[in-house]
Each structure stands twice: as structure tokens, then as C-alpha cells.
Design a protein around this nucleic acid. Structure first.
Lengths: 210, 210
DNA sequence: CGTAAGAATGAATGATCATTCATTCTAGGT
DNA sequence: ACCTAGAATGAATGATCATTCATTCTTACG
């Protein structure tokens, strides 16, 4: 009786950048499925369909791979937001608000896969200064952009007694909290109602823009 | 040259319940300091000033210890909230709202120590069904209580077009998001302004109660 | 074709860690 | 003062995992 042969796959050689990307994607998949704590190098390389040694070749250490993965995830989310806020897609201020909501509760961002990874890293921020640095740098950039968008809206609408900085902080916190709720208690909250809650927040602040 | 002798401590025997509590506290301290991923049984028992074997004696496995620690932290936070919302300390509805804010941004809850632990577990929720079960059970209980408090306020104030369930979800999400911001970007947000942001949210919804 | 630069492999290594359990010690009961 | 139930200890064990590196394979280029 012969053991079933794993189909001998031909070894493929690819440029460094492509392999790095492939490993980062595999890392995201593993963290979403098994958690940051129990993800091993073996799992990651297997997920990528490669051998264990490959990770060392492209990232030196596990620590590096995890750091680069966080950088990638943080950049993807925050540049998506920032592009919308800067008005790449909509000049109109009201439309930018709607586009922002659509992005924050859209298919790309609210996948369980993505949110798991996001909060897995947040959970370690308290213990790893480097994670805190990466996340807070992006957070600050997005916060500035949001504050400036809100300031424009306040001016355009002539809204009184609203501080753009405070409002931006509140809105960001609300969005993070809603993502957390979607992850932790998905039965209590749908994407649609989460989106509505975000919308209502904006509407109370900017009644003529939403 | 003699190595400095660790002062031989006399072995102390204590009731099971007290040792369990001591180990849970040590676990919280370690998670806050080193993160959930790198906390070892050695660290925990050392933090408690006990030997490694003790953990097995009272909790069987590391898994159990971590689970019981989460149960303890979740219960502490949510029962604190629920007691206030039920009006143990204040019959008046407005006072209950203020008390809730004070609790959520008070000394006890917003310590880095506590918030680190809280989010460390949230980060693993995506991968460990048992954590999700514990957290979401308490979340649901607190959400129900908050919804009922909001419903009373809506009735008392005759507020129109406000859904208590939706508002409760939004408020909880906002508070979670603010705690996360306090943990991740402490330089951008003080406890005082976080509290003010929470207050403003309530004020927009219940202008006559805050 | 032939060859060499370097990409990819995976068995081996050593470090870390949870768990075990034979032994030691404590304190309440007699 | 003595005894014993069972609380506490910590060296030993075995499992898991990141990392290494001698070897194999691929492909671009002459």
C-alpha cells in the first residue's frame, strides 16, 4: 500500500517583490483563521504553497513578516480613506461623506477576514511599541484629513458650535467601535444598520449635508 | 563569591478561591505588560510569587486560566455598567447618564492596564469561539440594559424619531472606539476630551437630559 | 546548449514553553 | 505534641516552533 503522493509541484522562481506580497497575503489569511497568537511560520508558508525556508529568505524573521503585514494592512485601509476624503472621486463635499461611509462599511473593509487582522494587531499594541508606532502614524494622517474635510463642511454649511477636531475624533471612534461590534457580535448588528448608525451621527452634526 | 540568595520565603497555604483570584490578577498584569501572545505560565506564576506547578493545580491548563481571566474582566466591566444603568446609585435618569459616563472614563476602567487586556482578548475573538461567546454574552446583557435606559429617557423627554436600540448600539460603539483611541493614540486624546465626546453624543440625542 | 547566479527547499538544530508528578511542607484536628 | 490531608514546589519531560544552511533546482544570458 503506497501513501498517496502529494502531487510533485514544479518549483517556480519569481521576483522578490512578488514573493513578499504572496507571503504577506498568506499571513493575513492565517491570522484571520487562527489568530495572531497561534499563527506559525509553518502555517504561513504552507498557506502560500511554499517551503518553510522561504520566509527567512525574504523577511529574515517572523517579527519582520508580522510588522510588514501590519504596515500593508494599515496602509491599505488608511490610504483608501484618505483618497476619498481628498476628493479624488467626488468634488462635492456631501458626496465625499457618502463615499466615505460606503467605503467604511463596504465589501472590502468589513470582511471578517480583514477585521480580524485589524483587531489582532490592535490587541498587541499595548505590548509592542513598534505596532503602536505604525498604527498611530496612519491614524494621525487619517485624522488630519478627516478634520480638514469636516472643517470645510462646517464652513460651507455655516454650522455653529461644532469643533472639527472633536467631531473627527468622535466619528473615527464610532467607526472603529462599529467594526468591532461587527466582528464580536455579528448577530446583533448588520452592516446595513452599522452604516445607518454612522450616517445618523453625521446627520446630527451636518443636517444639510446628508 | 556567593550568589545573592533569594530570600527563602516560607511556603503559605491558602484556600483554593484565594489562589485562583491571585493567579487571575497576575495573568492580567502579564497580559497588560507583555501581551496575550507572549505571556507564559512561568511569567504568570512568578508575578504571583508562586511556583510553576501551582497553575496546573488550580486551572489544569493555560487555556483554562486565560478563559477564566477573560470571564473575570468581562464581568467586572459589564456588571459595573449594568449596576449604574439599573439605578442602584441614582434614581434620576439624568444622573444615571452622568454616572455611566463617569464610570466609563473613570480611573478604574481607563487604566492602560485594563484596556490592554480588554483589547488583547478582542483581538483573539475572531479565532477563538469561546472568547466570542463570553464577550458577546456580556455585551448583549449590557446592550439590553442600555436600550431600556434610553427607552425610559426617550419617554420621559418625549424625544421624537429616536430608536433606543440603534442609539444604544451607537453609544456602545462610540465608547469602545474611544477606549481604543486612548490605548492606541494616547497623545491625541485625553480622558477628559474622550469623556466630552461621549457626553456630546448623548447631548445631541437627549438635549434636555444632559 | 551550457553555465552560473541566486531562488527555493526541507531536514536538522536548538530554544522556548506547557505540563507532569514525586517530593516537601503546612496547618487544622485530635 | 503528633498526625495527616492536601496545598505547594520545581526539576524533568516532551512537544512545538523559529531559524539555519547544505543542497537542489530554475532561468537568464552568453
Amino acid at each position: 500500500m503506497k501513501a498517496a503522493q502529494p502531487p510533485k509541484k514544479r518549483r517556480k522562481i519569481l521576483p522578490k517583490e512578488q514573493r513578499r506580497q504572496q507571503l504577506i497575503e498568506a499571513t493575513i489569511a492565517c491570522i484571520a483563521r487562527y489568530g495572531l497568537a497561534s499563527t506559525t511560520m509553518h502555517m504561513v508558508t504552507q498557506e502560500a504553497g511554499l517551503s518553510v525556508g522561504i520566509a527567512n529568505l525574504h523577511f529574515e524573521t517572523k517579527e519582520n513578516l508580522l510588522r510588514e503585514t501590519l504596515r500593508y494592512v494599515a496602509e491599505e485601509y488608511h490610504t483608501g480613506q484618505i483618497d476619498i476624503m481628498r476628493g479624488r472621486e467626488a468634488e462635492n463635499l456631501s458626496d465625499r461623506l457618502t463615499a466615505l461611509l460606503n467605503f467604511q462599511f463596504g465589501k472590502g473593509v468589513t470582511q471578517r477576514r480583514k477585521m480580524s487582522v485589524w483587531f489582532a494587531y490592535y490587541g498587541e499594541v499595548g505590548a509592542r511599541p513598534i505596532y503602536q508606532k505604525i498604527v498611530s502614524a496612519w491614524d494621525r494622517a487619517a485624522a488630519r484629513e478627516l478634520e480638514s474635510l469636516f472643517a470645510s463642511i462646517i464652513q460651507e454649511g455655516g454650522y455653529r458650535d461644532v469643533d472639527p477636531g472633536e467631531l473627527a475624533m468622535g466619528y473615527s471612534a464610532l467607526i472603529d467601535g462599529l467594526h468591532l461590534a461587527l466582528l464580536v457580535t455579528p448577530r446583533e448588528l448588520t452592516k446595513q444598520s452599522a452604516r445607518k448608525i454612522g450616517r445618523d451621527f453625521l446627520q446630527r452634526a451636518f443636517p444639510n449635508h446628508i
